[in-house]
Design a protein around this nucleic acid. Structure first.
Length: 1031
RNA sequence: GGGCAGCUAGCUCAGUUGGUUAGAGCGCCACGUUCACACCGUGGAGGUCACAGGUUCGAGUCCUGUGCUGCCCACCA
């Protein structure tokens, strides 16, 4: 087998493994037949990636973790399903396609029309879905690829119609007006989550509204301030607080309370606010009181420019502690003003056209864009002298994440889902522990969010999505409806506010278009993407049909996700799962960290600070990527991934900095070749070679793959001439050599630790434990020890069997994290080792075709032997001490030096038979080993675990080096001894600490004192040697 | 404004219910290509566990406060 390459070829291995898994459909899961006895089931539904674009590093992490759980459970004998699929991602996908359409063809969606646009988006979806699925497969995701779903496919669509219909029938769907975030560029509403705020320089305009027919003693005008002066065209009132004195008192009270618990740093600001309040009390209060009285009398003010009379209303929204104390009310374009409008029964004047221009309600300003209108309004106000003051001010302006243009709040009719009844069971599911969220702290956010029970607006003014199964008809009676639609269980209706009806149907073939001659018109809107996502766990399994899959795999076992969609998605899945099926959708939720860049910022394609998982898979292999990501998956909320750019021409690494991070093009400082670091934005960039962002983190994973590969090469070299024979591990009796018993003990401990880490979603710990064991213990210690045994015919077979046991076990335990390298090696190992089975394999069955289906290692607890592990640790410490002396004394690595070991009595039994192992691992000739060995005169010495090591370096000894080192060592030991003595002489320690702790401390002190005595003796010997040499 | 995290070696992170001398990977220094692996081996240097108090025989770990960083939610005439 020496022809095997020294380096693991991840490309070839990945191709072979994928072919094997696909041809055997090792990832496929059949549901249990109803009533089947065979018990354990494990299922996961994938958080469906958006078809907006390719997968990023966060997806790679999310899917790696799911694959770890799925692969481990499958090996553990669970009937395991991982349901794959993608999400249509409503607005995100439509926006991407629309933007392209505009850029490439200069067309808007209105030029194309609904059907044609939707067809374009389907084409996009096909392209990206394919890319995404390829990426998942490249990553090694062992999804059941036969069951692929899409949130907009027929099966999911049927579930959406049925779920919406059931909600409607139970009166949980309502029609209402809501201020939507209107994207004037895309001409659609976007959800709050698709809005980002950006601070921009703006102004604060103070505008005078004259009071109509002021009485003597009354103010002749009120002043209001706004950052959006053009909205005054839609004003329908000016508000003042009904009781400004009370409001001021409350504000003052609040400030005083806050001051009491504020830090010294915050207090000056609060003091200033208090002072301002006092000033207002003196200067504004009488006037505000008068205005409040005027409001009660139904007095009016005149709207500037348009001249409309507006009522002065008394409403607590107007805060006397802010601005002038009066506020303009624009109900159709501001969320708070909308509430005031409802309370005060004000008219709602919408001044906006969908394209962002002003409509006829804006009078002479109609047709202008909001921006132009603002300029003209301000100019006109100035001209009429109604503009009192303009201040500069930084404003937090809402922008659409999709078009990057400013959002205009806009009042529109929407469908809502009432959350009152629905939320409570979802809260209870978590608080009662039926659903467990890991880490637990995230449960609070979930419960708090649901507790607000805010209605869920589900209408979206989009074309890409599930069309809302809702129709409207005006001017008919219920009898007409019954006549036209009959009584069927797929149709329901509710009266509207104006004598018409809303009709809902779950029937895809609902083709009625008139009722009693009146048109039945379908709602043009589609549903919020999260509506179909909320059904994902049951819709993918066939609901509302009673499929075997639903019966077997629902509720699912675990949901793996990141914290940012805990409310948007997780909470809604619980709500809808409970509503539709009466069951929770999953038992546990595993929340993993988010990957940030070197500077703690989220990675994104637009920023260009990310890593493309494809680059890593290409360069270093999927296993390297997965291992690195798994190692980062602790229960912290974020992890940082420092990234470098690699020059494609010369391979030079350029550290990512805040300066170069956002540049699409870099020039290599070494070879000055230009390259691009992110998705190209121009044709010129596209022509440049791509210089991928890389991270050292992945190299550790690649190195580990290679280590495993080379350990296998070693094992195979010695295995090739031994034929199949029985079960390995049976010879691990009390007579077995110490290193075999040690290995068995460690295997048992490690298997247990790895298993429980997976059970508890401690992914990183699983990776760490296995890495340390495989590298330091199996490769560095055990393999080294086997070298001499393999050369000895008497010991060879036993060593081979234990080597096979160790390697096979490591491969199986690591397989969930690193599926490709473990599969590849396992195949090669068993091509040579034949059908040799592990103790946990089914003796009646043949070895499976893939490690994916091999049994998870469960070594007997009896293998764990604490004493053996301790003794072995002493052995390693002795070897380490000798190596350290050799290094310090610059002994040439290949020369053997004479040495002796005086063993402590409790390890003599162990160390004596390890003589040749010590000799080979530490490169020494042992002239003596045992409890009574005499010190070698003039030797360098070390004291470890009660044993004394003597290394005869003859004339080689560097006396000064030994003295320096012993002095330093002794000083350190003396420090510990002192600390320990102090601790033990503390009476309360002896009295209060548990006995075991005290005893342990005593033992340590004894050992430290022993070591110190030996160290001092050695030092004295060298000092006298130096003195005599000098004399 | 409300809530949640983080602060441990140059960097990225571990550190299980308080209990030996606080660890890993990368990076750094020295030495080494003998036969699994230089994507390697051996050894080494490097930490006032953000800061200040407190509880305790004992604190990286528990409590209180402070500082800095980040995230979520709400709000911003």
């Amino acid at each position: 087998m020496t022809d095997l390459s020294k380096h693991f070829d991840h490309r070839a291995a990945q191709a072979r493994c994928r072919a094997l898994w696909d041809s055997t459909r090792a990832w496929h899961a059949e549901p249990l037949l109803p009533g089947a006895a065979d018990g354990r089931v494990f299922s996961i539904v994938i958080p469906p990636p958006n078809v907006t674009g390719a997968l990023h590093l966060g997806h790679a992490l999310n899917n790696t973790l799911q694959d770890i759980l799925v692969r481990a459970r499958r090996m553990q004998g669970f009937r395991t399903l991982w349901m794959p699929g993608t999400d249509h991602a409503g607005i995100a996908t439509q926006a991407v396609v629309e933007r392209r359409l505009l850029e490439e063809e200069k067309q808007s969606r209105h030029d194309l029309g609904r059907e044609a646009l939707v067809a374009r988006i389907w084409a996009w979806k096909e392209e990206y879905e394919k890319r995404i699925l390829d990426q998942l497969r490249d990553l090694g995701a062992s999804c059941d690829w036969d069951r692929l779903r899409f949130t907009l496919d027929d099966q999911c669509a049927a579930a959406v119609r049925e779920a919406f219909f059931r909600l409607f029938k139970k009166s949980l769907v309502r029609r209402g007006k809501r201020l939507v975030n209107w994207d004037t560029f895309l001409q659609t509403a976007v959800s709050d989550d698709e809005v980002f705020h950006e601070e921009v320089k703006g102004h604060f305009w103070h505008i005078r509204y004259d009071v109509i027919a002021p009485q003597p003693g009354e103010p002749v005008s009120v002043t209001v301030a706004t950052t959006r002066p053009e909205t005054l065209l839609g004003d329908t009132a000016v508000a003042v607080h009904p009781d400004p004195a009370v409001a001021l008192d409350a504000a003052e009270q609040d400030l005083r309370e806050r001051r009491a618990r504020a830090s010294a740093k915050e207090q000056p600001a609060i003091d200033a606010a208090l002072e301002d309040l006092a000033h207002r009390r003196r200067e504004f209060l009488p006037r505000l009181k008068t205005l409040a009285a005027m409001a009660r009398d139904g007095r009016q003010v005149r709207l500037p420019l348009l001249g409309r009379a507006l009522p002065l209303v008394a409403d607590a929204w107007a805060k006397p502690e802010m601005g002038s104390g009066c506020v303009k009310i624009t109900p159709a374009h501001d969320p708070n003003d909308y509430d005031v409008g409802l309370r005060q029964s004000l008219p709602m004047v919408n001044i906006l056209n969908p394209d962002g221009t002003l409509n006829t309600a804006a009078g002479p300003y109609a047709g202008l864009t909001m921006k132009k209108a603002r300029e003209k309004v301000v100019a006109d106000l100035e001209a009429t002298g109604l503009l009192e003051k303009v201040e500069d001010r930084v404003i937090d302006l809402a922008h659409s994440d999709r078009s990057k243009t400013p959002i205009e709040p806009y009042l529109a009719d929407q469908w809502f889902i009432r959350m009152g009844e629905l939320a409570q069971p979802a809260i209870d599911a978590v608080t009662s522990g039926r659903i467990r969220i890991v880490p637990e702290r995230y449960a609070k956010g979930y419960v708090d969010w649901l507790s607000e029970k805010r209605d869920w607006p589900v209408s979206r003014q989009l074309w890409w999505g599930h069309r809302i199964p809702m129709w409207h008809v005006a001017g008919v009676t219920e009898a007409d409806l019954v006549a036209a639609l009959g009584i069927r269980d797929t149709v329901a209706w509710q009266p509207d506010e104006a004598g018409g009806f809303y009709v809902c149907s779950s029937d895809e073939q609902f083709l009625v278009d008139t009722v009693a001659g009146e048109p039945l018109v379908r709602d043009a809107d589609v549903l919020d993407t999260w509506f179909s996502s909320a059904l994902w766990p049951h819709s993918t399994l066939g609901w509302p049909a009673a499929t075997p899959e639903l019966a077997c795999f629902y509720p699912t076992s675990t949901l793996v996700t990141s914290r940012d969609i805990l409310t948007l998605w997780v909470a809604r899945m619980v709500i809808m799962g409970l509503f539709d099926t009466g069951e929770i959708p999953f038992q546990e939720v595993s929340i993993h960290p988010k990957i940030l860049d070197r500077y703690g910022e989220t990675m994104s394609k637009s920023k260009g600070n990310g890593v493309d998982p494809v680059d890593v898979v290409e360069a270093l292999g999927a296993d390297a990527l997965r291992f690195a990501l798994t190692g980062m998956a602790t229960d912290t909320q974020d992890v940082r991934m420092p990234v470098d750019f690699q020059c494609p021409s010369c391979g030079h690494l350029i550290e990512q900095t805040t300066q170069n991070r956002t540049k699409p093009r870099l020039d290599c400082p070494k070879c000055s070749a230009p390259f691009r670091t992110q998705w190209a934005k121009t044709e010129a960039d596209l022509a440049l070679p791509r210089g991928p962002a890389v991270s050292e983190k992945f190299e550790a994973g690649r190195n580990f793959s290679n280590k495993l590969w080379n350990a296998t090469r070693f094992v195979l070299m010695h295995l090739e001439d031994c034929g199949p024979e029985g079960v390995v591990g049976e010879s691990l009796d009390a007579d077995a050599p110490l290193e075999d018993r040690w290995l068995a003990s460690r295997l048992a401990s490690v298997a247990k630790a790895a298993s429980s880490a997976i059970d508890d979603y401690r992914y990183a710990e699983c990776a760490r434990v296995l890495y340390g064991f495989a590298w330091d213990e199996f490769c560095s210690a055990y393999l080294e020890l086997c070298k001499s045994r393999l050369a000895d015919p008497a010991q060879r077979n036993r060593a081979r069997a234990t080597l096979l046991l160790g390697l096979d076990t490591i491969l199986r335990l690591l397989h969930p994290i690193m599926p490709f390298v473990t599969e590849e090696i396992w195949q090669q190992l068993h091509a040579v080792a034949g059908s040799r089975r592990m103790p946990w394999d089914d003796p009646a069955a043949t070895l499976p075709v893939s490690i994916m289906l091999a049994r998870w290692p469960v070594p007997p607890a009896a293998w764990i032997d604490v004493r053996t592990e301790q003794q072995f640790a002493t052995f390693l410490a002795v070897v380490g001490a000798i190596r350290e002396i050799r290094s310090r004394q610059n002994v040439p690595p290949r020369s053997k030096v004479p040495a002796a070991i005086r063993t402590a009595s409790d390890v003599t039994d162990l160390l004596t038979p390890m003589r040749s192992a010590i000799e080979s691992m530490a490169m020494v000739d042992l002239v003596g080993i045992g409890p009574d060995v005499a010190a070698l005169p003039g030797a360098a010495t070390a004291s470890v675990a009660g044993c004394e090591v003597f290394i005869d370096l003859a004339e080689l000894v560097n006396v000064d080096a030994e003295i320096a080192r012993l002095e330093k060592d002794n000083a350190k030991t003396a420090g510990f001894v002192k600390a320990k003595r102090a601790k033990l002489s503390n009476e309360s320690f002896a009295a209060r600490a548990p006995e075991a702790v005290v005893a342990a401390e005593r033992a340590q002190l004894a050992e430290l004192e022993d070591r110190l005595a030996k160290g001092e003796a050695a030092l004295a010997a060298f000092q006298s040697r130096k003195a005599s040499a000098g004399a």
